[in-house]
Design a protein around this nucleic acid. Structure first.
Length: 571
RNA sequence: GCUUUCGUAGUUCAAUGGAUAGAACGCGGGUUUGCGGUACCCGUGAUCUAGGUUCGAUUCCUAGCGAGAGCACCA
């Protein structure tokens, strides 16, 4: 927003000229009881300059008052500079909010790749994938909103021991195979069961362990027809099923990378850097992280096969080959990989600094159930990402069915139920600082009351309903507006004005939960306003209030979409 | 053991080193002829402990206690 940028710049130039301080003057939100926003630099520099903070604040106010008329500026003890928008400025500022033209003020545009979701063929899509997907997608949307160039990538595991374990299960387990024309979901469930069986046998029996190793070697060498056929078939089933899920989750990717592509590249890069970076140890090729305060990890195992580590080295090269001009290359995973990622990145750095420098790890906490237990895909007995989506949809369908009875077609109701279910799940994941662990309470996530995804959608739908009912008026709003009466600016208008500052900070800090928190606050303000302001039929206030409704709806919709949800107009 | 992340109402979460620590659920009490009550309003209640830095600490530093995660051929 122009005004904010102008104020920021004025403060910066004042500090530089008068006090010789080069400062990135951050304007921050204030408690609405005090002001709309504030600058706290006077408190920060008072000591350093040997001047009373209030005096500096007063000087800043004096400086700014010369240039700026749209806000009231006050210096307040002990040294805050408070800014309060004028009524007329807020009335004017509603217009760009209505059209959605408010964008964060990000100067430094970057090219950013975000890699997220990363499920493995033959395995179920579990809750961790759901989390990574929700977080990665909302980050990507945030970056786009901030004006950055965004590339979405998904790195799917289609080789490795887990496949061998699954195929062992297919060939040796006594598990009912689905028919050729069975739904994809049944097919992938079958593969999941085979994997669980194979993984259990791997631990339980030396004979199975040997056979699985053999199968794994066959996969890498591509030299056994039956194994190849199952590998192909299972891979296709899984990938097609994942696409169904991505669609439900409102995600699309620009690039799909596969471990089968990265493995040979990684193998070659690692081998080419022995012994300068990697060394042989106990029959394996390892990277000694201890020299950098990290730990040692195996990149090529005894059998000469690349591990996850080597494949990730290959992935780094593959990304660079496809997108050589990346400023930032983000990988979103669970925090259990935090230490791993440091070692892997350091190894890539030792090979080629240029490849490693954009690499950045964004990790999220682990999700646990109300019992506090880790949710794992290895033991079988778990809530999966798929089952969670299904449960949520089923619950949402009941409510929607109850609400609409036979007023809408089944397809319409289904679409609404899907949007509500996805919002419920994503909200739970995105409502808090994502690096912390998440306690997932199924009941609470699906609840339609209080802090929840459905609450945001409901608020939006309420506003849409008013807009629909006033469609005739909307067209003439522009010319009616200035001639009619406005309400005194209240909480809702002022919360709306906070959006640019919130969005800017969310983009810079890469923190989607700031959008969630704001969306909740906005929704509360909207519902509260709704209770005390009649819109349609409010006579001379109608035009102004409709504009407030439009600005609020547009802003809330933007928030909902930044979180990767669908802002349905009815629910 | 080492490394790492975290510790805020009864519960689940907020708060660039700044003003009276902000919500939701729960609990108690209210609001309807006005556009969607899946809403709104009022009340209730919290910064793990001990030091330190600072005009000022939930935030930064140190130690302790407690919880999660990682630490060699899985991903």
């Amino acid at each position: 927003m122009k005004l904010l940028a102008q104020i920021k710049q004025s403060i910066e130039s004042y500090l530089l000229k008068t006090h010789g301080i080069a400062e990135d003057a951050q304007l921050i939100l204030s408690d609405l009881n005090h002001a709309d926003f504030q600058y706290n630099g006077a408190l920060k520099f008072a000591k350093q300059l040997g001047v009373a903070p209030l005096k500096i604040a007063e000087e800043i106010v004096e400086q700014l008052t010369q240039y700026v008329q749209d806000v009231e500026i006050k210096a307040v003890a002990p040294g805050y500079v408070n800014f309060i928008y004028t009524q007329s400025y807020i009335e004017d500022a509603l217009a760009p909010l209505v059209t959605g033209d408010v964008k964060p003020n990000i100067v430094d545009k970057k090219r950013i790749m975000v890699e997220y979701t990363d499920p493995n063929t033959f395995k179920v899509f579990h809750i961790g994938h759901l989390m990574t997907n929700a977080i990665g997608e909302s980050l990507a949307r945030l970056f786009e909103y901030g004006g950055h160039d965004v590339i979405r990538a998904n790195y799917q595991g289609d080789v490795g021991r887990h496949i061998a374990q699954a195929i062992y299960g297919v060939l040796n387990g006594d598990i009912q195979r689905p028919a050729d024309d069975a739904p994809l979901k049944e097919k992938t469930e079958y593969l999941g069961k085979c994997y669980v069986y194979g993984a259990q046998q791997f631990e339980a029996s030396d004979d199975a362990k040997a056979k699985i190793r053999e199968i794994n070697a066959h996969i890498y060498n591509n030299d056994n027809e039956e194994i190849n056929a199952w590998n192909q078939k299972g891979r296709n089933w899984s990938l097609e099923r994942f696409e169904e899920l991505y669609k439900i989750l409102n995600t699309k990717f620009n690039y799909y990378f596969f471990e089968s592509q990265t493995a040979p590249i990684g193998l070659e890069k690692v081998k080419a850097n022995i012994p300068s970076v990697f060394v042989e140890s106990d029959g394996a090729i390892v990277f000694k992280g201890e020299e950098y305060g990290l730990h040692t990890r195996v990149f090529i195992n005894k059998e000469g096969l690349p591990t996850y580590e080597a494949k990730d080295v290959g992935l780094a090269y593959l990304k660079h080959e496809k997108e050589p001009k990346l400023n930032i290359s983000i990988t979103v995973t669970a925090n259990e990989q935090a230490e791993y990622f440091k070692v892997m990145k350091k190894a890539v750095e030792c090979i080629d600094l240029k490849i490693a420098s954009p690499m950045m790890h964004v990790y999220h906490g682990m999700m646990s159930g109300p019992g506090g237990k880790k949710m794992s895909s290895r033991k079988g007995d778990v809530v999966t990402g798929e089952s969670l989506i299904e449960d949520a949809m089923e619950r949402a369908r009941e409510v929607i069915e109850e609400h609409y009875k036979d007023k809408k077609t089944a397809a319409e109701k289904d679409a609404i139920a899907e949007a509500v279910a996805v919002a419920a799940i994503k909200f739970t994941i995105l409502k808090q600082d994502s690096s912390k662990n998440i306690m997932f309470d199924l009941e609470k996530a699906l609840s339609f009351e209080g802090d929840s995804g459905p609450y945001l959608l409901y608020t939006n739908a309420r506003l849409c309903s008013i807009i629909r009912k006033s469609s005739g008026l909307m067209n003439v709003l522009g010319r009616m507006f200035s001639a009619k009466k406005s309400d005194p600016v209240g909480e809702l208008e002022r919360v709306l004005m906070q959006f640019p500052i919130v969005a800017e900070r969310a983009v810079e800090a890469m923190e989607s939960h700031r959008i969630t928190t704001y969306a909740l606050e906005l929704s509360r303000a909207i519902n509260s306003w709704y209770g005390s302001h009649k819109v349609i039929g409010s006579g001379e206030y109608e035009a102004y209030r409709l504009r407030v409704v439009q600005a609020a709806q547009q802003t809330l919709k933007t928030c909902i979409e930044l979180l990767g949800m669908k802002a349905v107009e009815e629910m």
